[in-house]
Design a binder for these strands. Structure first.
Lengths: 347, 347
DNA sequence: TTGTATGCGTTATCAA
DNA sequence: TTGATAACGCATACAA
């Protein structure tokens, strides 16, 4: 097992000091160009690569960004992540991706890990705005720049990049109302998580504006997971609650809800219109048309990195609690579904 | 800006040496239990967290696994990644995720980054088996354990976890043949990338066994991207080449192909049966039924981590070029698509 | 039982 | 222009 080539190896080979090699490789004007070339050629030949750990132990910066997302199965996040790492590379950062699975404990662990390896910044899609708030703040005080994206954190000074969730939920609900639906359900968490709260508020606003009486039974408080959404809705449908449209707070919630509806032998969209946030691939698995709020994930990712980069370069920007609003649009999916010949494909 | 708490801070607070603190925190029998408790309580109060960089500079291990995947939009990879990080956590590792986008340059950059931060192991889904082979080998020699998953690397001693790709492709092609199709196309790279080669071989085997004459025109050599697949197939269809089924080497290829077919006003599945590897969500966006090879991604991810863990604990296992074969199955998707009322949902 | 000295690989500040 | 030394935060062999 060969060991990795270090400055020392190069130094010994040439017969100079490590500090000379170090400077030469970073093209310090201290070092003669003859020496610089000599060092460089040896370094290349030996395949030298500086040890990032040692470097960032001394420099204060690692040029690493940490990205924590809720769930990879949600294509909104994968698209956004794509925007993130492309822009990160452009800006000279390496970005590493971690997943918290909507679990505060996981989130804590990932955050601490990122702090332990001295990342410069974190792009955060937080589980909720309470549980780990103190930790967010501590990391920030330690000098790690944090940008929240998709999910902002109220009553805090974190910079963020989001859509206008209230407006989007309002528009989505309104779409249902215009399609003649009145018994519109809202599924998801509606407190604690700011995004969810905003979306809930938008839902309420649309109802109110259209003189639809608020029905408490049509608000299902669930977690942001497939199981929670599925099980809760399935039970509610079993109990005979009538609904004709659903606003789902996120992709997994919508997928769970959609499954519950189909299992209940109800039809989408005839009986129930399905709406979600994120324009997520997984919903297409249901094989039914649905509405979605497209949140321009790629753009959101890029802008998040840009904001974070600015934070790292300018303390003032960092302190100014900026919220960048990304455009969204209401779209419908799978409207062009082709009719399948029965028994054409059999299992 | 508060600085992070270090051993020194704790040591000064108590009035002992850093080495005492270091030992106390790791419960060394050297240190009295009184002292251990004292140190621990102070450490907790101050919120001490060891600096991983410094630690792994000394220890040879970082307990970090690097995961490099081709593309996040492919749900096969997100599912597999899920298996990976769940199992990694269980085994006491932190796993960080990077994406190479089927680009050898990106892959090189990510690999070197992982080496630079001294990860213990890498779970690799390589771009191809040639371009960065020397780099793979160098990292291995430097002591980084590498496990290839999904895509193995022939003529090398890397351990791997895959399905039986040839068999799977054979079965998929056979499914088409049994459905009465004879003009079956193969789309994707079919050389250089081992998985693709195996799948191609399986395709050929099925043709041969069913006395279907091999038609060179029905093999489209493309990259593993949406654009490459889409553009190539679209042109071929425009030129009037007749086909009635397609074996696509991967999800993005299938999505590109599906789009090309629909844009050409052909019907799936009536005119053309679509088949792919990975059981990927994104294909559902086409809103048509399709066949898929489910590769048990979650299981594959877990087993990859287990194999890597074993490698790290036992040099012999590492040297024995193990290939673990994960079960696959042919499935059909979207067969239960509900018929949509025209104009029910409008854009 | 605790402290001292040294080193991991790198950089920065001085001297030479 | 180059070299010696200390430092980053932590761990460990060895001395006290």
């Amino acid at each position: 097992m060969k060991k990795k080539v270090t400055l020392k190896d190069i130094a010994q080979k040439i017969g100079v000091d490590t500090s000379t090699v170090s400077k030469a490789l970073r093209k310090s004007p201290d070092i003669s160009s003859t020496m610089q070339e000599k060092v460089k050629s040896i370094a290349d030949k030996l395949g030298y690569r500086p040890n990032l750990l040692a470097k960032s132990l001394i420099n204060k910066r690692s040029n690493i960004l940490g990205v924590i997302i809720p769930d990879l199965r949600i294509s909104f996040f994968s698209e956004a992540t794509r925007g993130i790492y492309e822009e990160a590379t452009k800006n000279g950062f390496e970005s590493i991706l971690l997943v918290h699975d909507e679990n505060p404990k996981n989130e804590k662990q990932k955050l601490e890990f990122l702090s332990d390896i001295n990342v410069d910044g974190i792009l955060l899609n937080s589980v909720d705005e309470n549980t780990n708030l103190d930790l967010y703040k501590r990391l920030q005080e330690e000098g790690i720049k944090i940008v929240c994206w998709d999910r902002k954190i109220r009553n805090s000074n974190f910079n963020s990049v989001t859509i206008n969730d209230k407006k989007a939920a309002y528009e989505l609900t309104n779409t249902f109302i215009k399609a003649g639906r009145r018994k519109i359900m809202f599924i998801g968490p509606n407190t604690g998580i700011p995004v969810a709260k905003d979306r809930y508020d938008g839902y309420l606003m649309a109802l109110k504006e259209n003189d639809i009486k608020f029905n408490k039974k049509l608000v299902l408080q669930t977690e942001r997971t497939f199981e929670s959404s599925h099980d809760t809705l399935f039970q509610v449908l079993k109990n005979g609650t009538e609904i004709d449209a659903i606003v789902c707070v996120g992709g997994l919630v919508a997928y769970g809800a959609g499954n519950a509806i189909l299992e209940s032998k109800l039809n989408i969209p005839d009986d129930i219109l399905l709406g979600e946030f994120g324009d997520n691939d997984i919903i297409s698995r249901l094989g039914v048309p649905f509405y979605s709020v497209n949140q321009n994930p790629y753009q959101m990712g890029k802008q998040s990195v840009d904001l974070l980069t600015q934070c790292l370069n300018d303390e003032k920007i960092c302190a100014s609690s900026i919220n960048i609003e990304v455009d969204h649009k209401i779209i419908s999916r799978n409207t062009g579904v082709q009719k399948m010949k029965k028994n054409f494909i059999k299992n």
